[in-house]
Amino acid sequence: MLIRDIKDADYFRAGDNCLLCELLHPKDEKDYGDLKLQMGYSIVHAIVPTGEKTIPHMLKESSEVYYILAGKGQMHIDSEVSEMSSGQVVYIPPGSVQYIENRGDCDLVFLAMVSPEWREEDEVVFGE
């Protein structure tokens, strides 16, 4: 059995400027011992601090799903823009330019699931 606790996790600033904590990734075996994760996706805990936004980016071949846990944001996918808040989920198709802005007065916190799992060579960050 594998249980990861977010309280024990390390965060890093990703290329799109989001604070991320990798929860599960099938290629990352260092924390799982002998267990081989048989899953076709990866999942991270993400934070966009108050007043910040991610940098426009795209996953060329993978789709992504954000599930908003806390806060309010404005999601941008290609030419579409929509307000999002706690309890909502958004699907981001492969090849879509995307970013999310924190539009609330607290951290915007969400889970990001990538299928197939996130790979560095699949991501393009466009800058601002």
Rank of each mutant, 00 (worst) to 15 (best):
D78P: 04
K36I: 12
E83P: 09
V81Q: 08
E80Y: 08
M75E: 14
L37M: 10
K60G: 04
Y32Q: 10
A70G: 04
S42T: 00
S63G: 14
R119M: 11
D122A: 12
E83D: 15
R119E: 15
Y66Q: 03
I92C: 00
V44C: 08
K30L: 14
I55A: 12
Y99P: 09
L108N: 09
E52P: 02
I55H: 06
H45R: 00
V48I: 13
I77Y: 03
I68T: 08
A112Q: 11
M113D: 10
N102L: 03
M113V: 15
E61A: 13
R119P: 00
C106Y: 06
V114E: 01
Y41R: 04
S42D: 04
P56E: 12
K30N: 11
G87V: 14
L111S: 02
S62C: 13
L111C: 08
Y32F: 15
A46F: 01
Q38C: 02
K60D: 10
A70L: 11
V109A: 03
R119A: 11
M39K: 07
S85P: 11
L108P: 10
A112Y: 01
D34S: 11
K72D: 15
F110T: 06
E121A: 10
H76Q: 14
V48L: 07
I77W: 07
M58G: 01
L108D: 12
Y99Q: 13
D78M: 04
S96P: 02
V125Y: 05
M39Y: 07
S79D: 14
S82K: 15
A46G: 14
S82L: 13
L111W: 07
V48E: 07
V44K: 02
D105H: 03
M113R: 10
A46C: 04
Q74A: 11
V89C: 13
E64C: 06
F110Q: 06
L108S: 12
M58W: 00
C106W: 00
V125W: 03
Q38A: 09
V109L: 05
E101C: 09
T54Y: 09
V97Q: 15
I77F: 04
G51D: 06
L69V: 13
G95W: 02
